[in-house]
Amino acid sequence: MGVMGSHPGTNYTMAVTFRAAAVQIAPSKARYAENLDRVAEAALKAQQAGADLVVFPEACTTGYFLEGGVGDVAVPADRLAADLAARLGRIEIDLVVGFYEIDDGNIYNAAAHIEFSGAGAKVLNVHRKFFLPTYGVFDEERFVSRGREVTAYDTRFGRFSMLICEDVWHSVTPMIAALKGATVIIAIAASPARGFSASVPTNVDTYHRLLRATAEEHGVFVINSMLVGFEGGKGFIGGSVVVNPLGEVIEEGPVGEEFMMIADIDMDLIDIARKKSPLLADLVSALEDVTREIDDVNEALCD
């Protein structure tokens, strides 16, 4: 378990705004209660290490590949919060947890940001996966509904957005998050390893490239948590990273192993990065034209 105390690129001592933990966990298939026990255990361990925020991967309460079983284990966000609160007791900590959500009879691949305090558990936000991979090994849209929005929301640490897996493979989703004011993007994923021609699976490098690009383009922190373990022969990669707004990886988890990493987040870096590279401001400036271009494309596609 690593704790970063200095910035690798500029070698100055950081002013810590908050301490984040990202957990790589291998859930037991469809065993919601057992997996929640492990999430709570890791959250308490992270708290002992001084973490204010703990991020858990996509589908960590059940495992990722569930097919029709997803209906057996999906829960409302409030129920997830209550079940975790029952395990955590009265502690002050924020958790982001990937889970299958049921709401109004619809099932979503979702992430919940839950704030725990003496007053109980409060669901700050739920993100429903916007892009559902339905190709190759993936079959999500057959079993879950698609989220319809990318939101940004306020936390005690700053303004956040959550994205899930394919959401960060498209540049448009982090772009919307940044435009809505997010300065921290939580990116959780369950990515089965593919490509063994180098020292790490190919998609580990792909994720790192995408997450670094997201952070650098928009001047945001990216806190990423990846599932590990095997499901039906498919091994999830791990290799989670925390990336600063300069696009630098400040903490990185191992590939394919359960692990908890801790990174100190200095939100002052957001201003520093955005002054140095004001791409987000440029985007805002050009937004009207960007929107018109997209409208034109949309119109052409609908013709």
Binding site: A193, F196, S197, S199, P201, G233
Partner: peptide, 23 residues
């Protein structure tokens, strides 16, 4: 067709342990 045999071996050993022992 080239693969990193060290990574493949490590991955397959983890696969065997996970599927047999853990599951």
């Amino acid at each position: 067709l080239r693969s990193d045999a060290e990574l493949v071996a490590r991955w397959l050993v983890a696969f065997l342990r996970d599927e047999c022992i853990r599951k």
